[in-house]
């Protein structure tokens, strides 16, 4: 049987010690037997490792950061689209999602399909909005407060007990035991990710995560819970294991159903000693550890491509419990010609 030809564009090829999900997303879709797949990598930097993985990407184009203006990014995508006829685009960075969501109609006109959350879904799960989210959807969240200026740090004691978590709006999280440490992290985070900086109540317990996919109609297409077994100094999973945890799955189903979540999602949760689950973050995209879910029997990136193509996807009803992953680093040798070509022409 002839498989349908699908051209998939993916960002997040930065498979570093703080990995973007691009490479595992591509690896997952490549394992699908449903498509005759061509993969176009979209890279922001010339040394994103995925660019040079020729078994992962077929071609790579450099694209401008969304922070340089969405107009430039769209113009670049129009140029790429004329040449590559992209069917589906999976953006993988929190910081770029807003631009792609805002531009989804324009992308659709160009023939590029996406399967992203709505702006409303994206906005309401922001770290700074978590207390309101918890109240609206009836789920446990830590007390949080956004701060915009140094003088707010003095007032933290009015609302929180130390230690507190200090978080950037997109990335980075630090545990601070006093206001001096908050000040230090505030400066570090705001210089990198801008304002607000979020102060969050520290919930003691074990960090557990769920990768999930919602169909936008309230149904959960798939969900796999995991515990990080080895965490890097950047807080990233270097090893993990799938769990048999009904409470985590029930919470995921509840959130997806209550928000009508559309697209990939990573729930970051803390399980307390009393077995209560607190949502500390909802990431509106597939996480970098998604390949664990694929290995456990749920190819969520493939399902996402099929949803983007307008297919009906039957929800997964099981996964392998106790499936593990461990990351590794690998020195990829690169031909200078490849680096030169990408640096000078923006294409490889």
């Amino acid at each position: 049987m002839n498989k349908p030809k699908v051209t998939l564009a993916v960002t997040g090829l930065n498979n570093t010690d703080n990995p973007g999900p691009g490479v595992p997303v591509i690896r997952s879709v490549r394992e699908s037997e449903a498509f005759d797949l061509t993969v176009i990598g979209l890279a922001y930097e010339t040394l994103e490792p995925g660019i040079y993985m020729h078994n992962i990407v077929d071609k790579v184009y450099q694209v401008p950061y969304p922070s340089e203006g969405s107009g430039d990014l769209i113009k670049r995508l129009e140029y790429i689209q004329e040449r590559e006829k992209i069917d589906v685009l999976i953006p993988n960075f929190d910081a770029e999602l807003y631009t792609f969501m805002k531009s989804s109609a324009r992308l659709a006109e160009m023939g590029i399909k996406t399967f992203l959350p709505t702006i409303e879904q994206f906005e309401e799960r922001h770290k700074s909005e978590l207390p309101a989210f918890g109240k609206k959807h009836g789920v446990n969240v830590p007390k949080s407060k956004s701060i915009l200026k140094h003088s707010d740090i003095e007032k933290i004691r009015d609302d929180f007990e130390y230690p507190v978590m200090v978080k950037g709006k997109f990335y980075d999280a630090y545990l601070a035991y006093n206001k001096e440490q908050v000040r230090m992290y505030y400066n570090k985070i705001s210089a990198k990710w801008g304002l607000p900086v979020i102060i969050q109540e520290f919930i003691k317990g074990t960090e557990v995560n769920v990768v999930a996919l919602g169909d936008g109609k309230g149904n959960t297409i798939g969900a796999v819970p995991m515990r990080k077994q080895y965490i890097t100094d950047k807080g990233k999973a270097w090893g993990g294991i799938t769990l048999d945890n009904k409470e985590m799955l029930d919470l995921t189903h509840k959130i997806i159903s209550s928000t009508n979540w559309r697209g990939g999602m990573e729930l970051e949760l803390i399980k307390t000693n009393k077995n209560e689950l607190y949502i500390i973050e909802i990431n509106p995209r597939i996480p970098a550890w998604v390949y664990l879910a694929v290995g456990a029997g749920q190819n969520l990136p493939e399902a996402m491509v099929r949803l983007a193509l307008g297919e009906t996807v039957k929800p997964f009803d099981k996964y392998q419990i106790g499936r593990m992953f461990v990351r590794y680093s690998y020195d990829l040798l690169i031909d200078l010609k490849d680096f030169e070509k990408l640096s000078t022409t923006g294409k490889l």
């Binding site: 515990r227 077994q229 769990l243 048999d244 945890n245 419990i321 106790g322």
Partner: peptide, 8 residues
């Protein structure tokens, strides 16, 4: 080897 699938 003992494995608790609920907690990992």
């Amino acid at each position: 080897f003992v494995f608790d699938p609920n907690s990992g």
